[in-house]
C-alpha cells in the first residue's frame, strides 16, 4: 500500500521524503488546485526542483490540477497540464471533464487520477470515467463506509485511493457549496474552502467568537481549543432547540489508523494524508507515524496493532485534538 503525503512547499516536500512517504502530491501556485492559499504551492522553478528531488529519492510526484477550468481561461489549466508532463509528474490529479479530455488527447501516456473533487462514490461512475478518459486511479470521497469501498473495489480495476488522515470533509467533496454560500469562494473555483482572509476571531464578554465573513460560526471560552472555522463544524441553534449544538459535525480530524488492515483487505491501493496547507512539522510527524504503521502491517498483517504513542502524536496535530473514523464507520453516518 502506498503512503501518499502532502507538500504545500519545498520544506514540506523534503519533510515528506525524509519521513518515509512513497509519493507526494502538490499543486501549482495559482488557482488550478484546490488548496490555493497565499504562501502555498510551487512555481515553475520550484516545481522543477521538486521533481528532481523526488526522482532522486525514488518517490513519486502527483500534481493536483483539481479545480474546474473557467470558460475562456482554459489555457491556464492546459498550461499546468503541459508543464506537469514536461516535469515528468508521475500522475495528474484532476476532476474537470474538459481537463481530463484534454490530458487524454494531448498526453495519452500520462497517468490520470480522478480527484476527490469529482466526488465519484460508486463503481458505475468510476468505470465510466475509466472508459472515457482511461483514468488509472480515483480518490474516493469521504462519504463511503468500509463496506461500500469493498463493494466498489470488487467492481472495478481502477486503483483506489482513500483519505487516511487529516481534515475531515463531511460532505461529498467538490459538490459542497457551504463555503461559497458564506464567502463567495469554494475549492471548485476559487481554490479553497473557508479562505483565511474571511476568518476573524474576537473576544467578547469573556468569550471568543469565531467568524467567517462576519457570520458567527462558534463562540467558546477563551481557553478552549478551537478548530479552523468551516461552516460544517460550526455551532448553531436548531429551530426546535434552545441550546446551540454542532449540528453537522464538531471540530475533529479523520484518522483511520485502526482501520488500516481493513482498508488493505478492501483493495485500497493508496493512503492519502490530507494537509497541503499544514506545516512541515505536521508533515514530518504524521508521515512518520503512518510509515511505521504501514511497515508494521505489511511485515505481519495478522498481528497488526497500533501503538498508543502513534495516536498521541496524531491527536496533538488534529482539529480540536480529536479524531474520528468518519463515514468509514457506519455508526458515524
Amino acid at each position: 500500500m502506498e503512503l501518499l503525503c502532502p507538500a504545500g512547499n519545498m520544506a514540506s516536500l523534503k519533510a515528506a521524503i525524509n519521513a518515509g512517504a512513497d509519493a507526494v502530491y502538490l499543486g501549482v501556485k495559482d488557482n488550478t488546485n484546490a488548496r490555493s492559499f497565499a504562501g502555498l504551492n510551487f512555481t515553475p522553478d520550484t516545481l522543477k526542483q521538486a521533481a528532481k528531488l523526488l526522482q532522486h529519492a525514488g518517490k513519486k510526484m502527483y500534481l493536483a490540477i483539481n479545480t474546474f477550468a473557467q470558460t475562456g481561461l482554459e489555457q491556464r489549466w492546459y498550461d499546468a497540464i503541459d508543464a506537469a508532463a514536461d516535469y515528468g509528474a508521475d500522475a495528474l490529479i484532476m476532476a474537470d471533464i474538459s481537463l481530463l479530455d484534454y490530458a487524454t488527447n494531448k498526453h495519452p501516456q500520462m497517468p490520470l487520477h480522478l480527484s476527490v473533487q469529482a466526488s465519484v462514490s460508486n463503481a458505475t461512475a468510476l468505470n465510466f470515467y475509466q472508459q472515457q478518459f482511461n483514468i488509472r486511479r480515483a480518490v474516493l470521497p469521504r462519504v463511503l463506509s468500509m463496506r461500500q469501498i469493498r463493494d466498489i473495489s470488487q467492481q472495478t480495476n481502477v486503483e483506489l485511493e482513500v483519505f487516511a488522515y487529516g481534515s475531515l470533509c463531511i460532505m461529498a467533496e467538490g459538490r459542497c457549496q457551504l463555503s461559497s454560500y458564506v464567502t463567495g469562494e469554494s475549492p471548485n473555483r476559487g481554490g479553497s474552502c473557508s479562505p483565511a482572509k474571511h476568518v476573524r476571531w474576537q473576544e467578547c464578554q469573556g468569550n471568543r467568537q469565531t467568524r467567517l465573513n462576519n457570520i458567527l460560526v462558534d463562540s467558546t471560552g477563551v481557553n478552549e481549543t478551537i478548530g479552523y472555522p468551516v461552516i460544517c463544524k460550526g455551532r448553531y441553534l436548531a429551530e426546535d432547540d434552545e441550546q446551540p449544538e454542532f449540528i453537522l459535525e464538531s471540530p475533529t480530524s479523520l484518522s483511520t489508523l485502526e482501520l488500516l488492515p481493513e482498508l488493505a483487505r478492501s483493495g485500497v491501493n493508496s493512503l492519502k494524508i490530507e494537509g497541503r496547507q499544514r506545516s512541515p512539522a505536521y508533515v514530518t510527524q504524521v508521515t512518520r507515524v503512518w510509515r511505521q504503521a504501514v511497515d508494521r502491517y505489511q511485515a505481519s498483517p495478522e498481528k497488526f496493532q497500533t501503538e498508543a504513542q502513534w495516536h498521541e502524536v496524531l491527536r496533538k496535530v488534529s482539529e480540536g485534538q480529536a479524531t474520528t473514523a468518519g463515514a468509514y464507520d457506519r455508526s458515524w453516518q
Binding site: R142, V143, L144, S145, I170, M171, A172, R175, C176, Q177, L178, Y181, C232, A238, D241, E245, I247, L248, E249, A327, R330, S331, W332, Q333
Partner: peptide, 21 residues
C-alpha cells in the same frame, strides 16, 4: 431553497440522537 451539500451522514437523525441506519 438551494441545495448546498450532501453527506453520508443524516443530520436530521443526528439532531435526534439517531443515525442513518
Amino acid at each position: 431553497y438551494l441545495p448546498l451539500a450532501h453527506s453520508a451522514r443524516c443530520f436530521t437523525a443526528r439532531h435526534h440522537g439517531l443515525n442513518k441506519d
